[in-house]
Design a protein around this nucleic acid. Structure first.
Lengths: 210, 210
DNA sequence: GCCGATCTACGACTTTTGGCCGAGGCGGTG
DNA sequence: CACCGCCTCGGCCAAAAGTCGTAGATCGGC
């Protein structure tokens, strides 16, 4: 039982309670050890540079810097960085973006402590892991919408309650053009009105209200 | 160090990970002990009946039964039930409804483990506790909107992407009347369009998208 | 250099939405 | 009873939104 070297874990979550809870679970394992915690993306990058952990547990949906962006930057500065996304939400957009950014695993917070530990060991062993729910969402997301930059920008402003004219002003284009973009957007989302579009876009993780 | 009687705690959260994390924290305290866990509202009521815990830690936003409803039912069957709401969200609507339903405390999951334990002891001692952020939201909510049943129903359907005509059909009234309800709603929310209304209503916790 | 995607924009049109009135019915309260 | 809040509905009108088709400009890839 001589712990030669425990694998080092970096914990990133904006909820202190979740951090200490998960830290407790992990530190109970003889082969794992939490070496640092971070409450947002910027802190996460700093902590990574200081400790170069073997694996990083990362919540998406954080203040200061978005989770997917953190994944990207971590992998930029260290292509071997192993990132496990641990979050509550499972929109197809977030899942696929996180995986594309280089996350090795995507698990939901309703996972059991045992399964989480197993997942960490799997990732340390070079495997990857997808939560069943996440896999299902991805599968249905074969029909994943590919929005153009303008469509996405229009969508975001629209979801913020802006009128076509206001959107046009902010984007520096004509309101006719906004109509064109939104028309294309509606077609891609399979809807016929803005409120419906906001609903579907929210469900898919394309926008975040509140 | 003879633990005369440790206060019993019931843990309700739909995330297994959060449950075991918090359970670890609580069980490390000599005067506290988790006696049961539940993953949704119905389980929570069953567990309460079996164990009659001294205090219940409850997440809002759960499947099967809404958290506020759980608070209400717990207090119904035992007016002395001490419920601490432990959640991630802090919309003024949820906070005030939870407190009105009889919750003794409202804390957010970004609380530290120490503060959570303190909060539990406070509640056991008969005190109550409001997270600063929650208190602030409540304060600004002096202007809390009071929607009529019809206004709320129209709002919900509208947020679901329905047109006035569709809302009218579902409610069995004229679309003119729907316009009236929505007009009043807009005035109360301080907006002039449906998408804006959806945004504000979501922020206030009046509706839940996704 | 051609093709496809994207962004831009217009006309013309229909439908929907939102604002501004008034008005009757109904149920509870002072 | 009179008042008030809520629900109901109507007309009218202006503005916004959504649908159709068309079309020039740009950019990147084959």
């Amino acid at each position: 039982m001589a712990p030669t070297t425990r694998a080092s874990v970096l914990l990133v979550d904006d909820h202190a309670l979740m951090r200490t809870g998960v830290a407790n679970i992990i530190n109970q394992e003889a082969d794992l050890q939490v070496v640092a915690e971070a409450g947002n993306g910027v802190e996460a990058l700093e902590a990574y540079d200081r400790h170069h952990p073997d694996v990083t547990l990362l919540d998406l949906r954080m203040p200061v810097m978005e989770g997917v962006e953190v994944v990207r930057r971590l992998r930029e500065r260290d292509p071997r960085a192993r990132v496990i996304v641990l979050t509550t939400y499972d929109t197809d957009d977030e899942i696929s973006r996180a995986l594309k950014a280089g996350a090795k695993a995507y698990v939901l917070k309703d996972i059991s402590a045992d399964d989480l530990v197993t997942c960490i060991r799997d990732v340390l062993a070079g495997k990857s892991y997808l939560a069943p729910a996440a896999a299902a969402k991805l599968a249905e997301g074969v029909t994943r919408v590919q929005l153009t930059p303008r469509e996405l920008a229009s969508l975001r402003l629209m979801a913020d309650g802006k009128s076509n004219k206001e959107i046009a002003n902010e984007l520096g284009i004509s309101d006719r053009t906004v109509k064109t973009h939104l028309g294309h957007l509606f077609e891609k989302l399979g809807v016929t009105s803005r409120t419906e579009a906001v609903k579907v876009a929210t469900r898919r993780g394309l926008v975040r209200l509140a």
